[in-house]
Design a protein around this nucleic acid. Sequence first.
DNA 1: TGATGAAAAATTGTATACGATCTAATTTGC
DNA 2: GCAAATTAGATCGTATACAATTTTTCATCA
Lengths: 245, 245
Amino acid sequence: MARSITAPDGFGAAATHETFQLPPGRTLDICLNLHNAILEHRLAPGMKLSEDEVGEIYGASRTVVRAALQALAHSGLVTIARNRGAFVSRPSIREAQEVFEARALIEPRIARLAAHAMKASDLKKLKKHMDAEHAALASGDKGKALALSGAFHIAIADIADQQVLSQMVRSLISRSSLIIALYWRRADTTCESHAHHALLKAFSEKDGSAAEEIQKSHIVDLHSGLDLREKQDPKSSLADALKSG
Amino acid sequence: MARSITAPDGFGAAATHETFQLPPGRTLDICLNLHNAILEHRLAPGMKLSEDEVGEIYGASRTVVRAALQALAHSGLVTIARNRGAFVSRPSIREAQEVFEARALIEPRIARLAAHAMKASDLKKLKKHMDAEHAALASGDKGKALALSGAFHIAIADIADQQVLSQMVRSLISRSSLIIALYWRRADTTCESHAHHALLKAFSEKDGSAAEEIQKSHIVDLHSGLDLREKQDPKSSLADALKSG
DNA sequence: TGATGAAAAATTGTATACGATCTAATTTGC
DNA sequence: GCAAATTAGATCGTATACAATTTTTCATCA
């Protein structure tokens, strides 16, 4: 069965062909599809992505699948181990810290630029994103809601019209999705929406400084929603327990 | 003739296996080699990188070469056009602007972090980098001098010990090399050294604020050394000339 | 002479085959 | 019964073959 690829829907699809610097084609299709699946948490960190299996699913040969997996590896969503294959990445605690620190550096700047470049049509688009996110949350699809929340941040970067920074943000947000899958501790995802609402207000007033400030706190807040304490692995903790017993 | 690959020398080699998120192997070897060649301006922007030709040079099959070219495409040094092949990228004026704006945002922060993390051994390493750069410049190898100048910036990022930001800087500096090949206008490359000296002083005094400030001016200065005025392309200028004649 | 079009050559896109390496299951020895 | 070694299976790394596409060449005609 060839061509059973889900068409990327207008909203969830945060990645374009520029994300992977690949020409259009089947390799790119598979990239985008896997990318979405990972962002929506349908593929969990650590999961094996066998070349044969993926090829079977998409009706493509290993040649094409390999290229797709290597592209995803370069964007950090997939980790390839020689002679062992490809796995959905498991960002370390260290990497999680750094990703959110990088976001706290870059995204506020982008928010400021976006506020200055903001047009009426852009505001409408952002509003639609928010509505879609609410709808997904209401229907109970947390994975999709998270992906849409990321898409909101990417939409801002696109409005700022800075392609280089925008690519960086895309990569950081993709990795954030994995990080959240691994380390998120809060039950409420709703706090997000408040920040997004506040951003929208700043944008509508073309208040760059406010947008920058709000975005910065928003990201710091997201960061603080993670549980990034080192957990000693079971083996050593067992040894400790027995030693002191 | 297999295995005629130049061993990446300790200094010029700014890229590691993490730059491409590839496991060690021949694909990575070819990546690093092409990467260095581009950074040292031995391969000019726009040059065709035929799969057969590259494969012949490195004694590898097209399978391996293709993977290497796609990895380089993802890092922005190579542009792939479907059914037409791979070319050394020609960054647009727009992209040039954005790359240096991004550097001006990220690198000063890294310089500050590096200043705080700086150890005596790190200072020595940086000094060695500068000496190597001077040596290359003295011997007239401008390409190598430029690559080493980039390596200096990357070394700072490594000292700051921020892998995520470090990867971004690597990518930006690689692209800067192409940008300089296309748009550099100054004859003197020596101005660089002064900034690097000043940075070294700030580092030795562990003065983070000074390092941040110096790095920012340094990058703005580099940016101002480019000629980024739009040149109307020959075709349209010809049309204009005839229309008004 | 210059433009047009068709045929030939070169180059990339993809599938498949085979060897190398890793994983696991089974056997063997203690 | 348990650990180590061996073997069978699965998976990846690479080369090569063929199809699809582009580029070049060259003959033809206005």
